[in-house]
């Protein structure tokens, strides 16, 4: 659970830094008057960003718990998952591409190039669907090889992590579809840019989460670091 505690310590540090600026040492019984210290007018956009940030912190913790559980459950000498990792490198590439395309769509929307934004948005959706399809194929291969039910549980974790990650991405796709339809309906480039910005943040976060999960499920250049963080000392 050290990875989880480290994650929580990180969140605690961010929260602590924020709290330190909230005048918690003030003596409210001594001061009267509307001494307003709310953030500048951010309106719904700021609230949506904050909500997404909090949600992503929760999602991050969910996957940190899964990675920690992997570290506690799967023996260090696990035979691993009987799947060609090149398939997953390919799907990872598509998720990264989707993320890049969303960045590009956001830039186009901010320039007011709505048609370009829409086309790039559709390409991002397509890349995400390819990622999901690839993950689904890997899921099926694992299941058919009965690797989801082995005693060392590496295959089971693959099934579980890709399932939960895929569901989160599917939720994001639903939101993205709603944004695309909503923007076409209202025709507001500024609103489109804001919404794409939120989706981009979500996709980036899911990409990072997937890279961490990929790193623990298969040998990748960053697997050693994750092992250090989530394996209990021998």
């Amino acid at each position: 659970m050290s990875l989880v505690l480290l994650y929580l310590a990180g969140l605690g540090a961010v929260s602590g830094r924020w709290l330190a600026r909230q005048h918690l040492a003030a003596k409210p019984w001594l001061s009267a008057g509307p001494s307003l210290t709310l953030p500048p007018d951010g309106g719904t956009e700021l609230a949506a960003k904050l909500a997404l940030g909090i949600f992503l912190a929760v999602v991050g913790l969910l996957f940190a718990l899964l990675v920690a559980a992997y570290g506690m459950r799967v023996p260090p000498g696990s035979t691993g998952i009987p799947l060609d990792p090149r398939l997953l490198w390919l799907t990872t590439g598509f998720l990264g591409l989707a993320s890049l395309l969303l960045h590009r769509a956001g830039r186009a929307a901010r320039r007011g190039a709505e048609d370009e934004a829409h086309a790039t948005l559709l390409a991002a959706v397509a890349a995400s669907l390819v990622f999901l399809g690839g993950q689904g194929l890997a899921w099926r291969l694992i299941w058919e090889a009965e690797a989801g039910r082995t005693a060392d549980a590496a295959g089971s974790f693959f099934v579980l992590i890709t399932l939960l990650h895929g569901l989160h991405l599917a939720g994001g796709l639903a939101a993205l579809a709603r944004i695309a339809v909503g923007a076409a309906w209202t025709g507001s480039p500024a609103r489109l840019a804001r919404s794409i910005g939120l989706c981009t943040l979500y996709w980036d976060a899911l990409l990072v989460i997937w890279l961490v999960a990929f790193g623990i499920l298969f040998r990748t250049p960053w697997s050693g670091l994750i092992d250090v963080l989530c394996r209990p000392p021998a």
Binding site: L11, G148, S156, L160
Partner: peptide, 24 residues
């Protein structure tokens, strides 16, 4: 918000143990 994900993970893993025959 920070505590329920642990129960969520535990519940999903146990559900898979029960329904799909995994051995978490």
């Amino acid at each position: 918000l920070l505590a329920f994900p642990a129960l969520f993970v535990g519940a999903v893993m146990m559900l898979l143990d029960r329904l799909l025959g995994t051995s978490f």
